[in-house]
Amino acid sequence: MMRRSASEPEPLAWNPPRPRELAGIREDLVRSTASTLVHENTALNLAAGLGTISLKNVGPRMTATVLLSEERRRLTSAHLWSISDEMTQVSISAGRKLPSWKVQPDDVPSPSGLMMFDTPLGYYRADPSGQPARIVSIVAASWGPTRIPRDSSDHLWVTFWSLTDHDIGVQLLQQNGYSAARARRIHQSLGDFSWDNEVLLTYGSPSVNVKYLGDPGEAVDPSDVSIASELTLGWIQTLRAAWLLQKQDTRRPITEIEEIPISKTMRKQLQRMGYNTDPVRVVTLHRRHRSRGPRQQANGYTVTVRSHISGHVRWQPYPSRGVIEGIWIDDHVRGPEGAPWSQRTTTVKRLDRPPGGRPPIKGK
């Protein structure tokens, strides 16, 4: 087992909340976006250039007001999703192999949402000046409409949330002239989750706005190899995979979705405050207990050995809807149960066409 060096920072321990706790967590996040202390902290980060998206020719305080009020509106109407550990791992793997970076309106499972992952969907190392390095864990994502762009109906705002490191945060605020008491008050108001990063997606376009909203703006094409490894872009694909896997309409679905109603008492309270009160959707990996016999190929060849096939994307036509969609084929073992393992390596990692390419039509 590879050991982490003594100087290498450890990520904060992540104990994911139970699905029934998500309504309360959403309420805490909404409350934090209305806090004057959180507004102060957000403006401070924007002034330091730490925001991914800012408003062009608008000061940091006004920008903070706009961004926080929009996030508060999205969270209030958000549907709640809890993604299991296994399902997160499948989403990460599938996201890396999605054949396109384009987001379509029907990809999104709800107009606004808050999705909590049982294992972090990503990490990155932060090295603040004068402070020890730390590992930041991204554990949730929220999304919804934005009114900032002129053509707002064509855009989707996505916010990524990390575990709050209160100790580091207090130290950073003190470095910027805050007293210890005020720094603690600010970070206590942040709660356990912090707004970490944000992206603006344009429906039907592979470009992602990464800096400044407005004309002309600044966008990137994620299919560009030179930037495709950027962490935030990878998180987008993981989130997209988590959305798409739920709607995958095949005879052997990848997911199982259980709806857990919000308690009656809390539901009444949330309704009075204008919150969405739909059940929490818990997404887990579909369990298949059926044993499969030898698979007969179309050419009459019978598979008599077992081999591992890694997850990959395959184009699937849906004639009734007149569309062809990329579907995720999960990791699986090919061959009859109890057969000897193949001596050859048969791991499959492929797309039917290069990323962004035309899907096959009638096998061509």
Results as ranks from 00 to 15, higher is better:
Leu245Gln: 04
Ser342Ala: 15
Ser152Ala: 14
Thr304Asp: 10
Val220Ser: 05
Pro11Ala: 12
Val103Cys: 09
Ala34Gly: 10
Gln89Pro: 02
Pro17Trp: 08
Gly311Arg: 01
Val282Thr: 07
Gly191Met: 06
Pro19Gln: 07
Val313Cys: 07
Ser223Cys: 08
Arg287Gln: 15
Leu22Val: 10
Tyr124Val: 00
Ile257Lys: 09
Thr284His: 08
Trp143Ala: 02
Val108Thr: 06
Met115Trp: 08
Ile324Pro: 02
Glu259Val: 06
Arg150Ser: 13
Arg240Val: 04
Ser189Asn: 13
Thr304Lys: 08
Asp167Glu: 15
Trp81Gly: 01
Trp161Lys: 01
Ala241His: 03
Ala13Val: 15
Thr345Leu: 14
Pro105Gly: 11
Ala48His: 13
Val103Trp: 01
Pro105Cys: 10
Arg26Lys: 13
Ala64Cys: 07
Ser32Gln: 09
Leu67His: 02
Ser7Val: 13
Pro145Lys: 09
Lys56Met: 11
Ser110Leu: 10
Ser226Asn: 12
Trp157Arg: 04
Gln248Ser: 09
Tyr301Lys: 13
Gln174Asn: 12
Ala339Cys: 09
Ile236Arg: 01
Thr63Gly: 09
Val30Lys: 03
Ala94Cys: 12
Pro132Trp: 08
Trp143Val: 04
Gly357Glu: 09
Leu231Ser: 13
Gly234Gln: 10
Arg31Asp: 11
Val38Trp: 02
Gly122Trp: 03
Pro16His: 11
Thr88Phe: 04
Ile327Gly: 00
Arg147Glu: 14
Thr250Ser: 14
Ser93Lys: 08
His289Asp: 14
Ser110Phe: 10
Glu8Asn: 07
Glu8Ala: 13
Pro149Thr: 04
Glu230Cys: 07
Ser162Glu: 07
Ile236Glu: 01
Arg272Phe: 12
Ile186Met: 07
Ala47Lys: 05
Gly59Pro: 03
Arg321Tyr: 11
Gln248Phe: 07
Arg240Asp: 03
Gln237Gly: 02
Gly24Asn: 11
Val199Tyr: 00
Pro319Glu: 07
Val158Ile: 14
Gln297Arg: 15
Pro317Ile: 05
Ser77Cys: 14
Asp215Cys: 05
Ala180Thr: 12
Asp28Ile: 03
Gly95Cys: 04
Met115Glu: 08
Thr346Cys: 12
Asp249Ile: 08
Leu114Cys: 06
Gln343Pro: 06
Pro120Met: 08
Asp106Cys: 11
Thr119Glu: 12
Ser137Phe: 02
Phe160Ile: 03
Gly191Thr: 05
Val283Lys: 02
Leu201Gln: 00
